[in-house]
């Protein structure tokens, strides 16, 4: 029963990945002639300053995104009404940005931030703030981060909200009887109950922000200078722009391994406590 999935995964993931591995250890002078270079490309990439800078920029971007979107998403989910007609309205409106093609998201913010024709740019300029995302590094970063918050916070909200509505009313009644404060209700009832969905939210947001390509490409094109050239933009420039297949393939693999490693860390940290309590319960059950 798992065979179709395995076939599809082989076709869409493993074969392409093998192609990349193949490129990463070879060099070519065209004419489809390849020869073995071993780990040369990997060494070159790992030592290049361009790669280090792009990696740091991407890490910083993902870090900021997680630091803003996760708390904001939880807060909005907590503030959402639990029942009534407004729930549907809120859900539909909040999900809207998630369903806009990514380059359209880029276009929306490119226009929205323009000083001459955009609401945001014009508004900021009219209150005297010197804002220009095509020239000022800080403005470009702020624009990209606000854009991503606009685009993806709703995903965190939807996930957390789905966790929150699944909590049985009894839990809250018990808390009320105990006279629990709002904070302890959140800390000891709501947070543990939404931990699973929160893990998914963190993983998805981390992966997608780390792999972000289309939106910054449309809005800033990696500029001003190289200020918003994230790993993905750098990679596409190298592979498609300069056609340096070997280094690009090596970089792809390093990129993929970085994501894998960081996701594994998130996953282990966030589920480790879970396993402990489960094992503890099992042990307690066994001894009884």
């Amino acid at each position: 029963m798992v065979v179709p999935v395995l076939l599809l995964v082989a076709l869409s993931a493993i074969i392409p990945l093998m192609t990349v591995v193949n490129y990463s250890v070879q060099d070519t002078f065209g004419n489809n002639e390849f020869f073995w270079v071993g780990t040369e490309w990997f060494q070159e990439i790992l030592q290049s300053e361009r790669f280090h800078n792009a990696l740091l920029r991407t890490l910083l971007f993902s870090g900021l995104i997680l630091a803003i979107e996760i708390p904001l998403g939880i807060a909005i989910a907590l503030a959402m009404p639990r029942r009534g007609a407004w729930v549907s309205v809120c859900l539909v409106l909040m999900a809207l940005p998630l369903l806009i093609p990514w380059n359209v998201v880029g276009t929306i913010w490119q226009v929205f931030g323009r000083v001459d024709i955009g609401l945001l740019g014009h508004g900021l300029a009219s209150v005297g703030i010197d804002y220009n995302y095509t020239q000022n590094t800080l403005d470009a970063w702020a624009t990209l981060i606000i854009m991503d918050v606009w685009h993806w916070t709703s995903l965190v909200v939807l996930l957390c909200y789905s966790g929150l509505v699944a909590i049985p009313e009894v839990f809250y009644q018990a808390a009320r009887i105990d006279g629990a404060s709002r904070w302890s209700v959140f800390r000891y009832i709501q947070l543990p109950k939404i931990k699973r969905v929160l893990l998914i939210a963190v993983l998805l947001r981390f992966m997608d922000s780390f792999m972000i390509y289309t939106e910054p490409f449309v809005v800033t094109g990696g500029g001003p200078g190289n200020a918003t050239t994230f790993l993905s933009i750098d990679l596409v420039q190298m592979a498609v722009g300069q056609f340096d297949l070997g280094p690009a393939a090596a970089m792809s693999l390093i990129y993929f391994l970085v994501i894998l490693l960081l996701c594994w860390v998130f996953y282990t940290v966030m589920t480790s406590h879970d396993n402990e309590t489960q094992n503890g319960a099992r042990r307690a059950g066994g001894s009884r």
Partner: peptide, 18 residues
């Protein structure tokens, strides 16, 4: 989820060839 972790940018060229 590791399938989702592969950046699309990585897969563009191999996909095209495949």
């Amino acid at each position: 989820l590791t399938n989702r972790m592969a950046p699309p940018a990585v897969f563009v060229l191999p996909f095209f060839q495949l």
